[in-house]
């Protein structure tokens, strides 16, 4: 397989995994849109004008709660469509481009409401960068709208944002989530104090890697580290929390958490692949080019 093809396929299947994960999250569980819809500070006036309800009525209405739940499910169905579009995205299937662009917008909005839900921590929004940029990168790459060099730079920015966002929690500048400590303890056998130290070190490395992605001589190593770490942190959710005695319940809750994080591995791997090609040629990304429509592999649609 050519280098360009490998990058395209990495983006494609990471995007499929991402949307399938988000779809499952929305259809089975929930998503934090209430961080906006239930914000009395932001929405009370809007609700009064648009819906004509008092805030108390709105916030305690079973009908409103049901409507929000339905809305979450509808977005979940849309993400299924996005996964299909990612799976069969090609230069000639222009509808997939529009769907994926809309999917990127939906993911960006999801990142925004998550940022609100996590107490306006900007690092939370940054951590989602790999996810909400991925559909656009796939479309741009598929359409031949970006060169390998530009794609590489876009990848660097997205990966760096994600790793910095993650690092802010890991080093404790934001409260380190209890789940992370529990997960680390479960997988390593460390006590909580040692697990916290481990996370602190990992957080510092997140920052180092984010910076190193922009430093020519070490960028490829940084991308490879980011890919490995991204994969480990994605798979760790399943490894730590899925239990045989409650497989259906725990898999339902945690497999999607792994799927949505696969881009954290796939994007660095794509960057690594691009940098590897550049190193082989000694010129900036000369061997990497977007396949022409006639060359582009035509995957079978997901059914």
């Amino acid at each position: 397989m050519r280098e360009g093809g490998v990058v395209g396929e990495l983006l494609r299947w990471a995007c499929v995994a991402l949307f399938l994960g988000r779809a499952w999250q929305h259809l089975r569980w929930d998503a934090p849109y209430r961080a906006l819809l239930w914000s009395q500070e932001t929405m009370e006036g809007v609700i009064a004008v648009v819906v004509g309800m008092s805030w108390e009525t709105y916030a305690t209405s079973p009908e409103v709660a049901a409507a929000i739940a339905t809305g979450v499910q509808v977005i979940g169905l849309f993400f299924v469509l996005c996964a299909v579009a990612a799976g069969c995205c090609s230069p000639t299937r222009r509808w997939t481009h529009f769907v994926l662009a809309a999917g990127a917008l939906a993911l960006t909005f999801l990142a925004y409401v998550t940022y609100r839900d996590r107490l306006y921590r900007i690092g939370e929004f940054a951590e989602y960068a790999c996810q909400f940029t991925l559909p656009l990168l796939l479309v741009l790459w598929t359409r031949g709208a970006v060169s390998g060099a530009l794609l590489g730079n876009l990848l660097r920015v997205a990966i760096a944002c994600t790793f910095v966002g993650h690092g802010l929690y890991a080093v404790g500048l934001y409260p380190t989530p209890g789940d992370w400590v529990t997960m680390t303890m479960g997988l390593t056998g460390l006590g909580d104090a040692a697990a916290m130290t481990f996370l602190r070190i990992a957080g510092v490395l997140d920052f180092v890697v984010a910076a190193a992605l922009f430093v020519g001589p070490v960028a490829r190593s940084a991308a490879l580290y980011a890919a490995v770490w991204g994969l480990l942190t994605a798979v760790a959710r399943v490894a730590a929390f899925v239990r045989w005695d409650s497989f259906a319940d725990t898999a339902s809750q945690w497999v999607f958490e792994t799927l949505v994080r696969l881009p954290h591995a796939a994007l660095p791997l794509a960057l690594f692949w691009l940098l590897r090609a550049r190193a082989a040629s000694a010129e900036p990304f000369p061997q990497v080019r977007t396949p022409s429509p006639s060359e582009f592999p035509q995957p079978k649609p997901i059914t």
């Binding site: 409260p175 989530p177 209890g178 400590v181 529990t182 303890m185 006590g191 909580d192 104090a193 697990a195």
Partner: peptide, 11 residues
């Protein structure tokens, strides 16, 4: 108890 930190370990 604090459900926002790890429930096992020291707690």
């Amino acid at each position: 108890l604090n459900s926002e930190i790890t429930p096992g370990g020291t707690q």
